[in-house]
Design a protein around this nucleic acid. Sequence first.
DNA 1: AGCGCTGACGTCAGCGCTGACGTAATATAG
DNA 2: CTATATTACGTCAGCGCTGACGTCAGCGCT
Lengths: 346, 346
Amino acid sequence: MNADSIVSSKKTVTLADVAARVGVSARTVSRVVNGEGGCTPETRDRITDAIEELNYRPNLMARGLIRKRSDTIGLVAVDMLDPFFPEVAEGVQRAARRFKRTMFLASTDGDAERQRQALASLHGHGVDGVIVFPAWNSHADLTRTARRGLPIVVVNEDLTDDLVEPNIASVRADIQRGAELGVAHLIDTGRRRIAFLTDTKLLEGARVSRRGVGYRTQLARAGLPIDQNLIVGNHNSLAGGRQGVRQLLTLADPPDAIFAYNDLIALGALQELLVQGRRVPDDVAVIGFDDIAMCDAVTPRLSSIRIDCDLLGQTAVETLQAILGDPEARRATAALPVELVVRDSS
Amino acid sequence: MNADSIVSSKKTVTLADVAARVGVSARTVSRVVNGEGGCTPETRDRITDAIEELNYRPNLMARGLIRKRSDTIGLVAVDMLDPFFPEVAEGVQRAARRFKRTMFLASTDGDAERQRQALASLHGHGVDGVIVFPAWNSHADLTRTARRGLPIVVVNEDLTDDLVEPNIASVRADIQRGAELGVAHLIDTGRRRIAFLTDTKLLEGARVSRRGVGYRTQLARAGLPIDQNLIVGNHNSLAGGRQGVRQLLTLADPPDAIFAYNDLIALGALQELLVQGRRVPDDVAVIGFDDIAMCDAVTPRLSSIRIDCDLLGQTAVETLQAILGDPEARRATAALPVELVVRDSS
DNA sequence: AGCGCTGACGTCAGCGCTGACGTAATATAG
DNA sequence: CTATATTACGTCAGCGCTGACGTCAGCGCT
């Protein structure tokens, strides 16, 4: 009976249960649970024991309902299958822990509707703020959500149109410069027909991608023409990269270098080139973006533009902390530095 | 003034606000929000309009406090940097959506304390149940959490000691059979010194890993000796795989095949072998486990044991649904089938 | 006319918790 | 020895919402 009541109470245990057990008021138990002090060490110990015995855990929803903060943050990523997101998520997670916050992650596959649902759910469940890798075409949504009072930090938006709104801050690596470094490197090593293997979504409408800008800028600077045949869009995946190379290799005058939207696409491209009997980098150089861990583990090792994922995550969390304190604070931080990492594929 | 009140209400909008606007009771608004019916289409429309105008969103914490369910589930993964977890997470996400549930993800890096915190937070915030890739040495924790009333589905536990507890179910792929298929394949193709490159954690204490059992079983069946020098543990990462190969290559009698704990380790191993000038598979065959997408994108392509991540995630969610209905239901399901995928590395 | 019945609402309590404030006992100051 | 501060609690309301139940008008039926 006793042993049973200790380990397996079917009903949820509340503050009141603990209070009754000890013979104090629920308020006092609450004080102990929250370490507010204002009670005898002796009382504290008795309550602590009772909490242990009854296996009490605070109901965070009830607490959140009153406090209007939960010490949690949401991370809304696009696609967990692209290793870039997990890498940043780890950085966010680490930083969140430093601020004693729990991070909950939701992913959207880049779908605006799913992003909307994720944000609504996170907000409704009381996260104090969210860090978002925005889905395509979701600026209006983000703006509305922010106006509902949810602080948002937008991370690494590749599009150049800015979101200016109180409650929305943004953090990103210096993507355009990264693209410039990559393309300049290809040009410097003698490449003249440089393809841009990107995400289809970025070719729809009149999108202006920072990577695209960097690519064009560097070609122009070197006096190289921009050949639309060399700009191909595919799904953001290994398969998308492979498909892109297949398209490029049908050209009468195929490229001698590929600048990929990211490493996932680049890795797919790399493989397809090898399968098709092209030598990398002799026949075709390949350079990716993000510098995910796999870049260093494939053969030939993939050159890439390094983004410090840990720093990016950390900066995002710090920025969120800032706007949690003051909604007008730090609308945007300086773009984080990027670095060209030349390996064997270029 | 009006436009302002429409778009940017600073205060949180509640049912009562909407009710006041329309001139009905909060209860009626609640009925509309939850689609309970029992009101005139006309009233419904007026309320719907007011909800839109005031930008009202239900407070899910308040709702959860009463309903004692939130239609959310938690996924507690070990390490997002191992692509296996994101792949399963996608499967879980997809299945959760089918059941109209939102999934929140937390990761633990295999640390029991962080797992404890993640579970406490998820439970406290009212998730209806969790799917857990257990951290090492966390069975006691899981048991306690389950006894607090949180339904748990344990996924893909490699250890052979079972958790038998109401409120805990388990789902996994047939890991031991997978290991047997992989090792048997290596033996069948003439390999005689087969190394087992595993996770350090699994070598601590008297752990019995399903993969280890499969490995030993097959060696025994073929009459091959078990050489402790060929069983090395390292961190579960690309670097861990590289380090493992470095250790193995110092042996006087190095292996002619490597059976890796998972693909991440296998990919690291593969690279280090190539760097060290070994030919794969001619000098050393390598086979991984999980069959993550990258297996098919590296050169040489990595042989592996395929686990259907989508099915695994889906089964986990279905099992959770089952114990949500009945805590005694489906304690454990049959192990999901695995498949040997032979590519270029073996 | 009187009956019950249905539909469309409203009323009220309370989920579990904490902020604001009250109170009694003891410690310290004048 | 009284006045005041401090400590260690308790009381109470209410966060936003929904379950249970109540009310009342309108309808069909005898």
